[in-house]
Design a protein around this nucleic acid. Structure first.
Lengths: 121, 121
DNA sequence: ACGTAAGTTTGACGTGCATCAAACAATAGA
DNA sequence: TCTATTGTTTGATGCACGTCAAACTTACGT
């Protein structure tokens, strides 16, 4: 059988990968700088629970922020090497770069997430 | 024999402790913000190798910075809860708050220092 | 007591950042 | 094709930050 185009978005078909640093080019100080902001530390915890579509502010618990501001934070996290974003249609599928971060800084992400668990925004 | 006052500084007599947050009040986002700067991430590694007297720029590998700038970075790290500073005479004895940080965020400091090992400033 | 040395504090300056608003691009749906 | 939706980009604004310079504080040494 040949490939058949599906009607509905499954969320796992490939989409254009937005620009992000190579694993080897991820710099620790840039990660720390990116996460040294309450909003982005919050986003880290959101994406730690799995891939997320829907960048809308309400869904991310950021209803007090303008959508352009959210987009700005997304870009900083992506350019720091923390998240990876696939553009599929009008949606963005964002996920943590767990494997890459573990390869570059073993144990760091786990320790960080565990430390962030009990913290309020 | 009664106590005898020593002529030379031994480095371990008590001095006034500069203001710092309680262990329970240390906030992760503040730590990340403090270390999201090349100079302060460098200082973290310096103090990870043991207590340091002499805040002079040359001794800390910061000869390109003014002494007031170094003092500024010291204060930020101290107020973030990363370092502890005892004032003895004209000197400042700075050390990492290892025990406090481990108690507040178990495993975080170790993972961080290990990640910072291979990084150039 | 006087001068020197170590750090801190304050003020100033330029830059970067978080935020919003508006314009823009691209896609889905009718 | 037209319209609505999703997200990005650009411009503007106010604030925080890194840096230096100068003044100030405190303590050592003679």
């Amino acid at each position: 059988m040949s490939e058949q185009v599906t009607d509905h978005m499954t969320g796992d078909e490939d989409g254009a990968l937005l620009p992000q640093p190579e694993t080897g080019d991820i710099r620790l100080v840039k990660i720390l700088h990116a996460l040294g902001d309450p909003t982005r530390l919050h986003l880290l915890r959101v994406y730690a629970n799995g891939e997320q579509c829907d960048c809308s502010s309400e869904r991310l618990g950021l209803d007090h922020l303008h959508k352009s501001t959210v987009s700005h934070h997304m870009r900083i996290m992506r350019e720091a090497g923390i998240t990876s974003t696939r553009a599929v249609g009008r949606n963005r599928y964002v996920q943590l770069r767990r494997a890459d971060l573990d390869a570059r800084f073993p144990g760091f992400l786990d320790a960080l997430l565990k430390s962030a668990e009990g913290e309020e925004l």
